[in-house]
Design a protein around this nucleic acid. Structure first.
Lengths: 224, 224
DNA sequence: CATCTTATTATGTGCAGACATAATACTCTG
DNA sequence: CAGAGTATTATGTCTGCACATAATAAGATG
């Protein structure tokens, strides 16, 4: 049996409740004998399953079926243009504001950077109707030459031109501010889905974005 | 060099733009020579990175740095009790309603099931204050003996007692309905973060849940 | 020149064996 | 009996080798 087969068989036994959550399953060596393969092959299968959160492994203690299987959802971070075009709508965007300034305290603390940054406000439209309102702070110090953001979406330019980044992202529900409501064409206080995102290269903040989606937006994800 | 070291070094070179997106990196064999280790070790490191979406590998064609790094965020699906306890607060819950009935059309269509189901309404509390309001439909036909849900949280009972499941999940922002607002102790129409979740075993729906979080809730995720 | 066939090559996967490491179980000692 | 030290054990990882497989390149043929 190969490692995929072993993975499938182990999963089957867990699903069939031959092995219930919490119990220790046989050692790699025992399974290798049972499946007629090398321990390395069993190891790979079990390691994969542990990576998925289905098993928990500890040296000497053995391998157990996870008690609370860590259920993770993987969400593709939306690239708005692809999002819109994926629904068969026409994507456009309008740059509403572009200026230099010092971000507010909450933004600066999130960025870990208190200097002057480039501020952009962009409205993303689907078939001409407001789709999302983007407020973005850019750390021009580390970005060098910038393009004309009336032509190019900041997000896509960054994805294509900035080296690999780390970041974090948070989702929340908020009542639309007066400005956001006006731009999106809804009443102030309407529930809007907000994506807050910060991006770094090494220790330097690149950009802090607040994306305010028009009502009706849903973030879909698959559960492993 | 071990596989973690190799992974780190490859990542470093990508970040340092020694290897830019799109280019083919040296073969496993060449890297094994360079790093003074076995090909299997390089293989594992590169396979891991490919799994993360940093590299793209094809037989014979070689290994390339991913052109548009698939940016995915992984969110751990919240288990409310752990969520609350993780913040150092005391978790409790109250069962508000338990009845049999036929779900509404949208719920039934999402479930792909139109028969009678068990309906539960639960309020989750953190330090005695409303934390989230849960409305859940359960397919009793496939679940067999059920516990006393005044004692046990439905979610945790399911996690522990139902075999492994597949499902999907969606997040949105909505204005609180009158009922939701009353239960959560906020004004109707207040923006609330809503998690919609459906779970199946094989082809049978197990449960459909709508979780309505009190204002201020944030869903955090890390970006790979 | 187009097309079919045949190498070539990089990755995918497997095996047996070895040693490292962490966690537990056991034993000795005061 | 408590605490320190030691043995055991299951997983973690690496090596060197082998063969499988997919994709491409090169060559043969009409």
């Amino acid at each position: 049996m190969n490692h995929q087969g072993i993975r499938a068989e182990v999963l089957r036994r867990i699903r069939a409740r031959d092995w219930v959550p919490g119990v220790t399953i046989p050692s790699e060596e025992a399974l290798a004998v049972e499946f007629g393969c090398a321990r390395a092959t069993v190891n790979r299968a079990l390691r994969d399953l542990a990576g998925q959160g289905v098993l928990e492994r500890r040296r000497r203690a053995g391998t157990r079926v996870a008690l609370l299987p860590v259920r993770k959802a993987v969400v593709d971070i939306p690239v708005i243009r692809l999002d819109v075009e994926g629904k068969g709508q026409v994507y456009t965007h309008r740059l509403l504001e572009q200026s230099m300034g010092v971000p507010s305290v909450p933004v600066a603390s999130r960025a870990g950077f208190a200097g002057r940054m480039l501020y952009l406000e962009t409205l993303h439209l689907a078939d001409g109707r407001p789709y999302a309102f983007e407020a973005r702070w850019l750390n021009v110090g580390v970005l060098g030459e910038l393009p004309d953001f009336t032509q190019v979406s900041a997000n896509e330019w960054l994805v294509r031109n900035v080296r690999y980044t780390t970041g974090d992202i948070a989702f929340s529900a908020e009542g639309a501010s007066v400005r956001e409501a006006a731009v999106l064409g809804v009443a102030a206080g309407t529930a809007v889905f907000v994506t807050d995102r910060a991006t770094w290269v090494e220790a330097d903040v690149i950009t802090v974005v607040r994306l305010c989606h028009a009502p009706g937006y849903r973030l879909q994800a698959g559960v492993s």
